[in-house]
Amino acid sequence: MRTSPAPQRDPSRRAASAATVREGVGSAHAKAILLGEHSAVFGAPAIVLPVHELTARARLTIPDPAGEPDGSRLRCALYDGPVRSAPEGTAPVVLGWQYAAERVGLQDAGGRLSITSDIPIRRGLGSSAAVSAALVDAVADAAGRDLALDDRMQLIADAEALAHGRASGIDAAAVLAQAPIRVERGTPTTLPLGSGQMHFVIADTGVAGMTATAVGGVQELHRTRPAYVDTLVGRLAALTDEAAAALAAD
């Protein structure tokens, strides 16, 4: 009796298959705006402190190990499932993911994006910006791209704009900063400090807020009373400069 040899798998095909699995990781920290939160939207300076104790982390695996039919799955605190069924609350993450993927050449690659975060949401601590920064870095890492700081900030700012409408650029700079910064018109500079021995205490009131709503309210006020708002913005800018000088002098 003649027997046919058992089919052999081509080792090169196995290696090629394994090589197509890519993984990228990213992380970013929280922030606290000391002065200038809303006036910065109109070009005034703001002082921002990095909060390294609170972080957001992202991991992108391509292809999705769960083998979703559409190739995309999101896992986060709000949702765990196919992107096609993701609730409206995850839209900033999904849109930011898609936008970043297009920018680094991973459009239509799909995959599984897992996000974890210690940063309380709706507290003004930059939760969405930190998540955006983490996912931008994870997508770039999966694509094998080493983005320059300016490119990272721009991608994060664009993702933030999807979440909040008009963004000042503060959060995009702050969640990447390693030291207190002064931000004006989206451009950050390291803030000179005195001894560096000051302590800041951040207390959570337990009251949630919405950045988009707050920013929208200020913009509406500026539309109806521009001179009044411009005067306030000027006063806030002066206070911010005074605060910067006070920090430098301890």
Rank of each mutant, 00 (worst) to 15 (best):
D137V: 01
L176G: 08
G186W: 08
A173D: 07
G196F: 04
G144C: 09
S168C: 10
D171V: 10
I170G: 02
G196L: 11
A157V: 10
T187G: 03
I202N: 01
A157E: 15
A173S: 12
D158A: 14
A179T: 15
P188I: 12
A179Q: 14
H199M: 12
H199R: 11
L155C: 06
D171N: 03
E160I: 11
R152Y: 01
R152E: 08
H199F: 04
A174E: 06
S168W: 09
D158Y: 04
R182F: 04
I170K: 06
D151P: 03
R145E: 02
A177W: 06
V183H: 04
G169E: 10
I156K: 05
A163W: 05
S195G: 11
T187F: 07
G169L: 06
L193P: 10
A159K: 06
L191C: 06
S168M: 12
M153C: 13
P192D: 14
A203P: 01
G194D: 07
V201H: 05
S195H: 09
H164G: 01
L149C: 07
R166N: 09
H199D: 11
D171G: 04
S195N: 09
A161V: 13
A173C: 14
V139R: 00
V175I: 13
F200A: 14
G186A: 10
R152S: 05
D146L: 09
M198R: 08
A157F: 13
R145P: 01
G169V: 06
L155V: 08
V139A: 00
A140K: 05
Q178N: 13
G196Y: 06
R152A: 04
P188W: 04
P180L: 09
A172L: 07
D141H: 07
T189A: 15
Q197F: 01
R185L: 03
I170N: 07
A140Q: 02
V139D: 00
L155S: 02
T189M: 14
D151V: 13
D141R: 04
